[in-house]
Design a protein around this nucleic acid. Structure first.
Lengths: 189, 189
DNA sequence: CTCACATCTTGTCGTTGACTAGATTGACAC
DNA sequence: GTGTCAATCTAGTCAACGACAAGATGTGAG
């Protein structure tokens, strides 16, 4: 059992990342401590910093990974409704990533990888609603707001007791039924 | 100048609250430090804790105040569109309150004043959309999601560069135009 | 005047993030 | 094999923080 306490961890960055996602999903980013993560991974208190620089670096890595995961889930999304459903599905599947991605004050604001990943994701979001609204920019923000609002309230547990035990994704489908009415004869792309 | 360093501050709770709102609006709740607020107010490092107990107590007081402010702005709201506009107006006018209100992990979760204020606000939100949707619960969540998503993205600066210099409230009006179509003949309250 | 109470100060403890210097390890050239 | 070097991790330190306890100071009721 050389694994008892090997000098080299094997994949410390991944171990720290995973532990961080656990903590964030359970208690939010505020409860995150680099030293706590080091303890979980069985390494010294300064080891995580070697890979991520500092707290903001770790959270930036999580956010970047999150944009990648969201991009993957979006895939070839078609229309604002599909966009919303996939967006909500992402938030449920990766709540820790979701919580970090939209808090710039916790991140390295000009990290190039983060900016690139974010832009790739936004392009997919824009593409998904292109052709489904009179003004693409407005349609994009509308669909995004709707999806982001529901996902945010859901993840922050502000909808507890309002879903009536129903599957959140199903509830969101009902919401979009209320909102994204199918175009009624009149021209709507 | 007895004010130079009076033993009693006069209204330390309000001074701490105001300083906290400043910090949160500028750098987010994570940057908040009780000792920093004490320095700003010119009191000792333990003085704020006397009034709010601890960090969570201070943030709970802010959230409670926020629900009161939102209730006031909602007033006699009529319909989902009006709800959204007022909600966004609140988030712009009181960004610090807004940021704290929806992070239960930062608050005392069962504070009675907080729960009461939150319930009063939710009642107003529900009442605003009653009669404007086939299913009131669904209509409520739909309008709330839309407004909350836009407000969240706006306050977290995730819409920077997407508004084209336009007034955010005006942009939100455009969004609702895309979403909340006026009822077309068919019965919609 | 005095006494109870609210308010604020001072001092302390354990924890954290950040930084520095140094030890250990693995990989690669030769 | 052997030496060398960079990557990885450890150990030690410092300032700042939240929380707590004990004491000082002002305030107001009687």
């Amino acid at each position: 059992m050389t694994a008892e306490r090997a000098y080299h961890h094997g994949d410390l960055p991944r171990a720290v990342l995973t532990a961080a996602l656990d903590v964030i999903a359970a208690e939010g980013p505020a409860a995150l401590s680099l030293r706590g993560l080091a303890r979980r991974a069985g390494v010294s208190h300064a080891a995580p910093a070697h890979h991520f620089g500092d707290r903001a670096g770790l959270l930036t890595a999580i956010a970047t990974e999150g944009y990648g995961l969201l991009s993957a889930i979006l895939g070839e999304t078609e229309g604002p409704r599909d966009l919303g459903i996939r967006y909500v599905r992402f938030a449920i599947a990766h709540p820790a990533h979701f919580q970090v991605m939209f808090r710039p004050e916790l991140l390295r604001p000009d990290d190039p990888e983060l900016l690139a990943a974010r832009e790739r994701t936004r392009s997919r979001l824009r593409a998904a609603v292109a052709g489904y609204a009179d003004d693409p920019a407005v349609g994009f923000m509308a669909a995004w707001s709707m999806a982001h609002g529901f996902a945010s309230l859901l993840i922050s547990r502000n909808l507890d007791g309002l879903l009536g035990g129903q599957d959140p994704e199903e509830t969101f489908r009902a919401l979009t039924g209320e909102m994204f009415r199918p175009p009624q004869d009149s021209a709507t792309g």
